[in-house]
Design a protein around this nucleic acid. Structure first.
Lengths: 330, 330
DNA sequence: CAAAAAAATGAATACGTAACCATTTTAAAG
DNA sequence: CTTTAAAATGGTTACGTATTCATTTTTTTG
């Protein structure tokens, strides 16, 4: 590989001058500059970012630990985050966490000495949180938060669950089923609490079998769907904890010949882009802000990176109903 | 930051031994090993990947230059690629290219001295191809290929376009509109050629106004939709170059009250996961292989990285029709 | 038990860059 | 001109690791 020393030799200057040409060209005399530039061109020299990182103690890289991209929420946030980082001249290392690779993922992230970490994969009692704090690397979680209530950007999940439930109640539904992910995740916990609150406020009892806490994977949701179909008293409406869940369930129901919303109302939460598609036209609850949580989070992350802003980020965005065509009067 | 020297001092050994503990622990005596491990634990030492990269001349990082994630094809391939790389212990730098950032993106990739590059963003006559070859870094393009016909994984685009057109012709359509992206991209060129071939084989004339080459962005597609709606002789079927285009168009048509497939048949190409959703149920053409082009490409890329396999990769996967519910007899 | 072989460890160095300090060259001031 | 200041450039070092080679310690062998 051609290094700055090779360039220096070729141009008849010192390595220091080559470095200066690249970093502070205004401190180099014109003719010297030209000589060096020519040598760079001729030798096809590209500086080594790793060597630079080593001496500068900055990698110009952030790590993104994201949920799965088949969930449109995450494909939207990932896009926003990578584009923002790129615009700042930063690279983005993307990771997906599953049940048995979190160890390796965090190891890889810490080893790489990234300048910032943005994650949507944290659990309420996740032990990784302490490691993140101890590492001294700026980090922020979006969509989910840790029980410590530090460094997060989220929507008002309780409000979201509440509004979703209220909408179905307004439409005259009473036999409503909640389908959400594990309560070890703040997002699902908050949204479910909001849902329960609304039902209680309207004095609607919720039998245990109508509160379904499941995994959000396709297979588990299919099991859930089958169980519901077999149940004696089928729900007239489903309150799904996320648009991704709602959209998946719609697939199963429509495939089974059940019409939405005529036979079954369904509402999601997140207001992902895809939910607006005319074929789905999913009623949902989400932020007004079109930029999304991922954008807000990465924006804050870079504030932390650049300004060394050590203050704790706590952002909760309020939500509203987006009424579309998957819910109707009972 | 705590370095291996600090660990060495703390454990009363040399830095060399610390390095050995991490890399070749079997060459270290048990009690020494333990001392060092304890010191590592106590000081919370994590080796610096950049320093290692510098001396080993390997970064354990690949770069992915992808199309936009709102296109399900790319969210699927990105998932497959990142997961594969992670399983190999590699990080993935993800980049998105747009009209005016390609310079910076490639600069960033080359600067980072990645071990491999996987890209779906190349143009037929893309000058970046020579730079990639000159760089000596293993690389492969998927979905698209360069005119040099080197290092690519694609579907048989001509066959795909042919099958899509034939399907519509079989259904009795004659007024068929082709909607695809720019012909500077191999994917669109090949698919369109296949489409034209089928029409010629069936001796169906294609007036110029039925061959639409446009940008694949939402806004441009909307313009295309409006133009078609205004045209005197509306098509009875649309052959879209990709599922992403087809799905976008369905949104516009359904929003305008046009029924699919009753009023208009539409077929895509790619067979993305989303196309199977019951609400869309898009007829399409795609690979048999469920793993997708991204997976095949990254698999080959790692063969190149590990085996120093310099042989040129040329993979063209054959396709078949997936008949669903957006096409019907005229 | 001595000699030879093997195992364990350490000292020194390289990787490619930026930063710091020293030196030379050029321009400004008197 | 000479002196002083400023600009331009070069030499050396540090960043944190793995590697190479040398040295010490331990084990094996006859």
């Amino acid at each position: 590989m051609v290094s700055s020393k090779d360039v220096a030799k070729h141009a008849g200057v010192s390595q220091t001058t080559v470095s200066r040409v690249l970093n502070t060209p205004e401190r180099v005399k014109k003719p010297t500059l030209q000589k060096v530039m020519d040598a760079i061109e001729e030798l096809n020299y590209i500086p080594d970012g790793n060597a630079r990182s080593l001496v500068q103690r900055k990698t110009r890289t952030i790590a993104l630990i994201s949920g799965p991209l088949h969930n449109p929420f995450f494909s939207e946030s990932t896009t926003a985050i990578i584009n923002y980082a790129n615009a700042q001249g930063f690279r983005t290392n993307v990771h997906f966490i599953n049940d048995d690779n979190s160890e390796e993922v965090y190891h890889s992230v810490f080893e790489n000495k990234v300048d910032g970490i943005i994650l949507s994969s944290i659990y309420l009692d996740d032990p990784i949180f302490n490691k993140l704090e101890k590492s001294g690397i700026p980090f922020i979680s979006f969509n989910r938060k840790h029980q410590s209530e530090k460094n997060y950007v989220e929507i008002d999940n309780r409000q979201a669950g509440y509004l979703a439930a209220m909408h179905l109640l307004d439409k005259g539904h009473e036999n409503i089923v909640w389908i959400g992910g594990p309560l070890t995740i703040s997002t699902f916990k908050g949204r479910m609490e909001g849902f329960i609150q609304a039902m209680q406020d309207q004095q609607i009892a919720i039998p245990k079998e109508r509160m379904i806490v499941t995994d959000t994977k396709k297979e588990e949701l299919y099991e859930t769907f089958l169980a519901l179909q077999k149940s004696a008293e089928r729900p007239t409406a489903i309150c799904a904890a996320t648009d991704a869940i709602a959209i998946r369930l719609m697939d199963f129901y429509i495939s089974a010949g059940i019409r939405i919303p005529e036979d079954l109302s369904i509402i999601g939460i997140d207001n992902v882009e895809l939910s607006r598609h005319a074929s789905l036209d999913l009623t949902t609850v989400g932020m007004e802000d079109e930029r999304g949580l991922g954008f807000l989070a990465v924006e804050k992350l870079f504030e932390m990176i650049f300004q060394k802003n050590k203050s704790c980020i706590q952002i909760k965005k309020s939500v509203r109903l987006f009424e579309r065509n998957t819910t109707m009067k009972k």
